[in-house]
Design a protein around this nucleic acid. Structure first.
Lengths: 130, 130
DNA sequence: AGTTATTCCTACTTTATTTGTAGGATATTA
DNA sequence: TAATATCCTACAAATAAAGTAGGAATAACT
């Protein structure tokens, strides 16, 4: 599967943050309750989002996470990529392939990757909330 | 990865058959030599293509495989699907999900699936040979 | 009839990835 | 200093991907 639970959870968390985007921190415990995914499992995913600079985190009491931009300024591609690390439909594009030289199929995978990325870049968090 | 070695090998085999599409059977040993993938591993993939009716097989001496249509009449989507079984970017679409009811992300995955399938349906074997 | 070349079938193995869990360290606020 | 958070590291289980092995069935050609 190209997009795993990590990417999907990342998107769910971002949508939840967008729905509670009032300047206050939102704790992962609250998100986890609403999104109905294990808090512990979400931790790893959310920390990728934070490391990528997509959200701000605050530790300690009344800490939590919040968006750094408005929902319409996030596209889905950047969220999924931050969570998954990579997002390509075939491993040839990530890893490379020793037989890539005369490979008749490689250009197709590149095109497919473009089609996917362009689609996901065209969708914003705000679009999904409608 | 959405498209695994099975799907990619299936496409390579189909391209090889298209390049040797002279009415004679092409043995898997020959294909395997040219495509540089293990014959044993190719067997499983090719038998899916044959089961799906995309190619004809002939057993026994001077047996092998051949196309049943012209290269321009095969689209990539059907080849990949025959080999992979399914071809969707997220498991939600295959398996279903208990939380699908109010899921804000599910419509996105459906759209993404459409985008991918439409692209792959628009490409024929003949296109890849150019 | 027998030899050879081929696909077909089933089962197994290995490796990598996905999907989590557990426990505690660190920081912040009140 | 107590409570509430995030952060960090390591481990574990389940699933999927990638590849191997051995032989049975089939067909053609001597």
């Amino acid at each position: 599967m190209m997009i795993t639970t990590k990417g999907r959870n990342a998107l769910k968390v971002m949508l939840d943050l967008a729905q509670h985007n009032d300047g206050n921190n939102v704790s992962l415990a609250d998100i986890s309750d609403r999104v109905k995914e294990s808090q512990k499992y979400l931790e790893a995913t959310v920390s990728s989002l934070s490391a990528a600079g997509l959200i701000l985190s605050a530790r300690g009491k009344s800490g939590g996470y919040r968006l750094v931009r408005q929902p319409e300024e996030y596209n889905v591609a950047e969220i999924i990529c931050a969570a998954e690390g990579t997002l390509s439909p075939v491993s040839c594009l990530d890893v490379g392939c020793s037989k890539a030289g005369g490979c008749l199929t490689l250009p197709l995978w590149r095109e497919l990757d473009d089609v996917i990325m362009n689609f996901l870049r065209s969708k914003t968090l705000a679009d999904l909330l409608k």
